[in-house]
């Protein structure tokens, strides 16, 4: 067992995959110096033919990666801030994602887009603090949000090896998470398979990304009153509906906690599917950012807009108390 941080796990996954597969190359801003500490050392090791420091031309280099992928490479793109995904939404949603079907299966676009530090980074304000994973799940681009170091490693590996475009969000709130990891057991984690971090029988809490830690804390806090099961979907699209059903059919109660906007968010999709297809015994709840939220700058305002642990705790208690 060794101590591994989430950030180091991302770094290691990319390094391992580049060493294993010469078709893997990485593009992005300031990745040579490695300002986000994921691409550290890669330029020295693999040279500028595989580690490409790009000008600030996100739209161009995103579709440039699509072209390279169509021609057989396996590019990985680092985005410094989550909102840059808004800038390249056309290139991902309308180009990369559509090639396979539109070409009748002739083409594949194995590009991985990753954001080290999504969501609030305290004090980065309105344009740097979004969590647009729901948009990608909505258009059907494979979307992963790992919550632990070993899942960060394993899902990054799988994303790179996958033959379709995959977006990987590494929440700012997760980067510092450390875990005791069996380094020899590190390996790919399949897309679309959730993970139960803590078993329980009364309430299922689905938590996305860094909120898995909050959910575990709430489960611990309530341990002597309510038995909480913490389900981490890990992949938002494709979603592990069978895994969720197994949990919800056991507990009959569901709370989702998701650090993105409420309206048309991933939490809404999870509640809807559970309501349609699973044996819910009481109405479910979700804890999210508000509708249409823009993160305000001042710390207390920024925090007030993100889902809070105490809100989750209250939601779990309410769902538990609701009569069957």
């Amino acid at each position: 067992m060794a101590r591994l941080s989430y950030l180091k796990a991302l770094q290691r996954a990319l390094a391992d995959e580049m060493a294993r597969d010469a078709d893997v190359c990485v593009l992005g801003e300031d990745i040579g110096v490695g300002v986000n500490n994921v691409t550290t050392g890669l330029l020295a090791k693999h040279g500028p033919g595989r580690v490409i420091d790009t000008p600030l031309s996100e739209q161009a280099f995103t579709s440039f990666a699509t072209g390279a992928a169509l021609a057989g490479l396996r590019p990985v793109i680092e985005f410094q801030i989550p909102s840059l995904l808004f800038l390249v939404f056309e290139q991902i949603a309308n180009q990369a994602h559509k090639f396979s079907l539109m070409t009748g299966g002739q083409a594949k676009v194995p590009v991985t887009y990753f954001v080290p530090g999504s969501g609030s980074r305290s004090g980065w304000a309105g344009q740097h603090s979004d969590h647009p994973y729901g948009l990608f799940a909505h258009v059907g681009v494979k979307t992963v949000v790992p919550a632990t170091p070993e899942d960060a490693y394993g899902l990054f590996l799988t994303a790179i090896r996958d033959d379709d475009p995959v977006v990987l969000f590494a929440p700012a709130g997760s980067l510092g998470v450390r875990g005791d990891v069996d380094m020899d057991a590190l390996g790919p984690v399949p897309l679309g398979v959730g993970r139960v971090h803590r078993e329980g029988t009364d309430v299922t809490v689905v938590a996305v990304g860094h909120l898995v830690q909050a959910a575990l804390a709430v489960a611990e806090q309530l341990a002597d009153q309510i038995s909480v099961e913490v389900f981490d979907p890990r992949t938002l699209y494709p979603f592990d509906w069978a895994g969720l059903a197994a949990s919800v059919n056991k507990t009959g109660r569901l709370v989702v906690v998701d650090d993105s906007n409420r309206m048309c968010g991933i939490a809404g999709e999870i509640l809807a599917t559970a309501a349609e297809e699973m044996r819910l015994t009481v109405p479910p709840k979700r804890v999210t950012r508000p509708d249409g939220a823009v993160l305000p700058f001042a710390s207390e305002l920024d925090l007030a807009v993100q889902p809070q642990q105490d809100q989750l705790l209250t939601a779990v208690q309410e769902v538990y108390k609701a009569s069957r």
Partner: peptide, 29 residues
């Protein structure tokens, strides 16, 4: 600033959506 006003000015028209726990037209939390 008062956290209750975290989404003041979100819309020029004063439109208020639901907050993060689903209540309409109330303070954010």
């Amino acid at each position: 600033p008062d956290p209750a006003g975290a989404l003041d000015h979100l819309y020029a028209t004063g439109l208020r959506g639901r907050n993060g726990i689903g209540l309409l037209d109330t303070a954010v939390r």
